[in-house]
């Protein structure tokens, strides 16, 4: 039972990170019908920025939660700037181009950002300070869950709740949904579509950066390549849940995380990816639009 619980928590932890990154994929797809392959790199840049910020802050004599919070803030700002810029450079000029062009541009952006970080930093793994360990949990929680896992799940859940509320109730959220459902109509009502697209990239980047900080301090090391693996997994989660669907990305992340965790725990860690992608294939055969996805017949 205990072993099961550990695997379950591990799966939820991993899954909530996948979900955070998957939201960026699904929101951009919902609005532009573009798979932003550079999104994983934003997550990686978030982790690197946090590492640099945390090192600097520690040198200044700060410690504990202050480092965690400040490093996260710096990472979020930096990643948001990157997400915003990537859209302006790599996608906006191709808005009217055939659909394959922005896709190729996205892959190019991803390769560029990986190599840029490799050259600017290093190709080796760098140790990442375990910022989450310092958190003290109340005793009754401590027996059930490790502080790092608790922090990750709590942060991810709050962010997802926040995003849901923003989309449901704020003017910007409604405009985002309107642009996703009918871009021309949104323009006819006075929505500045370019601004909404920029904000979508910024929101996605913020979520990815926070995901990057959380997982990096949980795993304890990073390199320039972590964005690729996490990006592929999060993209899988988004497709699994139904690309374009916000709750789908959240659910897809958790399902994928749990599947990997249980496959690793009960069978072998060698089969982690086998099960992850077998699940994807299975879902795509049984329900091609994803678990919560709508079939794409909206546009008449």
């Amino acid at each position: 039972m205990n072993y099961f619980w550990d695997l379950f928590l591990g799966g939820i932890t991993r899954g909530s990170i996948y979900a955070l990154i998957a939201l960026g994929y699904t929101m951009v797809y919902g609005i532009l019908e573009l798979i932003n392959f550079a999104h994983g790199e934003i997550y990686m840049i978030g982790a690197f920025t946090a590492l640099i910020a945390a090192s600097l802050l520690t040198m200044q004599g700060l410690s504990g939660p202050a480092v965690l919070v400040l490093a996260t803030v710096v990472a979020v700002l930096y990643a948001a700037a990157y997400g915003f810029t990537v859209e302006k450079i790599a996608y906006k000029p191709l808005r009217q181009a055939p659909r394959l062009s922005p896709l190729i541009s996205a892959i190019g952006m991803s390769i560029f950002l990986q190599n840029y970080v490799m050259l600017a930093q290093t190709s080796d793994f760098l140790p990442f300070p375990n910022l989450l360990q310092n958190v003290e949990l109340p005793a009754f929680l401590n027996t059930w869950i490790a502080p790092a896992e608790f922090m990750i799940i709590l942060t991810a859940a709050s962010l997802m709740l926040g995003l849901t509320l923003i989309l449901k109730f704020t003017k910007m959220g409604k405009a985002m949904r309107a642009v996703a459902q009918d871009r021309t109509m949104a323009m006819l009502l006075g929505v500045n579509v370019n601004r909404i697209i920029s904000r979508t990239f910024i929101v996605g980047s913020v979520l990815a950066a926070i995901g990057g900080v959380l997982i990096a301090s949980h795993v304890g090391r990073i390199n320039f390549y972590i964005g690729f693996g996490a990006g592929i997994k999060a993209f899988t989660a988004a497709v699994l849940g139904g690309i374009g669907s916000i709750p789908g990305a959240m659910l897809g992340g958790l399902v994928l995380g749990l599947t990997e965790s249980f496959a690793t725990g009960y069978i072998s860690s060698d089969y982690e990816n086998v099960f992850a992608f077998a699940l994807l294939i299975l879902i795509l055969i049984l329900k091609p639009e994803g678990i919560l996805g709508r079939s794409s017949q909206q546009k008449v």
Partner: peptide, 14 residues
């Protein structure tokens, strides 16, 4: 071109 996934009220708010 009604937004199909938004309520009547939300369409009017838009």
């Amino acid at each position: 071109r009604i937004f199909p996934g938004m309520s009547v009220l939300e369409n009017l708010e838009m």
